[in-house]
Amino acid sequence: MTVTEQAAPARTHASTLKATDVVVEFPVGRGQKVHAVSGVSLEVPPGTTLGILGESGCGKSTIGRALIQLPPPDSGSVRLGDLELTELGSRDLRRARARMQIIMQDPVSALNPRRKVKDLVWEGRSIWGHDGETPKEVLVDDMLRSVGLDPEAVRDKHPHELSGGQCQRVCIARALMMDPEVLICDEPVSSLDVSVQAQILNLLETSARSFGLSMVFIAHDVSVVKNISDQVMVMYLGKACEVVPSDEMHRTSVHPYTRLLLASIPGEPQDHPHAQQVSVELPSPLDPPSGCRFRTRCPIATDRCAAEEPRMREIAPGHTVACHHVAVGAGK
């Protein structure tokens, strides 16, 4: 299957997606709360891709869901263009959600097993009503073709008759059918085989361009995130550590945790002074460490890191970092 370069005329109708101080907590009983996301801000300008990088439990998927208000954050603001999503009523919220679409990790479970591909792809239009001239069949076939599927072969199939890669293509087709402004991709390739991963990544890359989409791309793999993003936000235990332009991030990033992630890439030499880690135990998100949350694993942590939480500060244009021990200009 080739990644199609055709598809709709390039549009830049996307609005800026901006989240400020988003907090998401889940009660787990006995008065305890999981601090999944603790005050994260981000901005995705139209037509660009923000990568969110982190390990399991860092809150990267939670913030992705909070952006489309599923569930809405406990506090903080999410704005799509001029629209404040956290204050919308249920009907307006449903309409606003449809302007952002989400691609999930497990493509098989993201498709209702009892539906056929053509109905799955058409789902969004059937919710909002289809008022165009072109018949459903033509639009569905066109969309299937533009995500690299053969309409004849898959149109009448159920999800369990397709491979994982094909299911992910159907998910992408379903999302693109809504003509969204923002696409949130939550680990879209981590359940796929190596050779299929590249196909899907290419499809997302070309679709984002030809449909004029902004993307939030969430993953744990540094190389994958770097490859598709304009900017990369690194998260650790519900907080953002560093936001860095992706282009040279393997050289310019300075936060000790980002360095640790980079050093964990197989075959990468551990030459950066910050790349070592102290302890291997991940602190519990029920009771995160005081001050800087990474300090328990950080090789350069001091008393100040326990006492005072580092703020995000800009050390180079478009490059912010939350660490007491990084000098301005270090990211050069």
Binding site: S195, N202, S223, N227
Partner: peptide, 16 residues
């Protein structure tokens, strides 16, 4: 087909 940390952002990957 594996993306490399060295490759430029937005470059298409070789696929099978």
């Amino acid at each position: 087909s594996i993306p490399s940390i060295e490759s430029r952002p937005h470059s298409l990957l070789a696929t099978i």
